[in-house]
Amino acid sequence: MSSHPTGMAVNTRLVARPVPGLFTRLWTGSLSHWVGQYSHPMTWTGLTIFVLLLLFSWGGPWVYPADPLAIHANHILLAPSWRFPLGTDNLGRNMLARMMAGGRVTLEVGLLGSFIALFMGVLYGMSAALSPRWLDKVLMRLLDALLALPGLVLMIFFAALVPLNALSLVLVLGFLSWPGLARIVRNEALAYKERDYVLAARQFGAGTFYIARTHLMRSMLPILIVNATFMVADLILALSGLSFLGLGIQPPHPSWGGLLNDGLQLVIIGPWWLIVFPGLAIFLAIVAMNVLGQGLLARLEGR
């Protein structure tokens, strides 16, 4: 038996202790276990960068309120200065304000898109794993077919059908990304389904839904979190790539990918601030999520 943290045997009956508060109970119970389990320098690094990016995009306007869409013909292509910390673009728009607004859209698509993908993937993969064997086979063949579809072609197809804004891009990117996750979920669920603790739960009278929710989900949660983390990075990259094809967030609304693309159009005239800042933001977001995912993975595999 692992000894008490203080190394002393305390007779609980004799020592009157105050009833711990909710936070203390949470912390000493599962939270400290979780944090301890996943704490890794890379996790903290990635998480810090990502939180800073979130703060920049959503908290920034509180500190530096400026209209990202307002056009000012009298200060076109100004280099960074005190008044315009990130300069202005060829229409005289405030780059700092545009970077903040672009960050909101970009991170939103990344986070919500992977959330949708996660939701769909869990739903589909879990259903397949818990279905009778023949249905599982049918569902998996269907998934193979979906995985074989070229994403870009589908994207162009969608672009022709729906207006491209943050909402539609979240939905489309989310829907295009779930099949890979569904396969992971299904394989993990099948492996955990054979464990004795699932059999034990059935013996206690547990139904399929309970087993899926309590045991299978709990067991595969870490691997899902890791995959979702990588997917956020993938979706941010995908959204930025789409901007280059004109399939991303439509002008005049900014996104980091769109800003980078606009800046590259003007590269001949040489306004470096239009390229460096959006490029850096995309780079940081992707590195942050990958480092975070690697940190979590290192802990998962280290056990």
Partner: peptide, 23 residues
């Protein structure tokens, strides 16, 4: 279900028979 209360099982492998993510 009610009969399951009356009959319980202890499994061979105590490392496999309980979910490591539950307290």
């Amino acid at each position: 279900r009610p009969y399951r209360q009356q009959m319980q099982m202890v499994f061979q492998d105590p490392f496999d028979s309980m979910n490591a993510r539950m307290t």
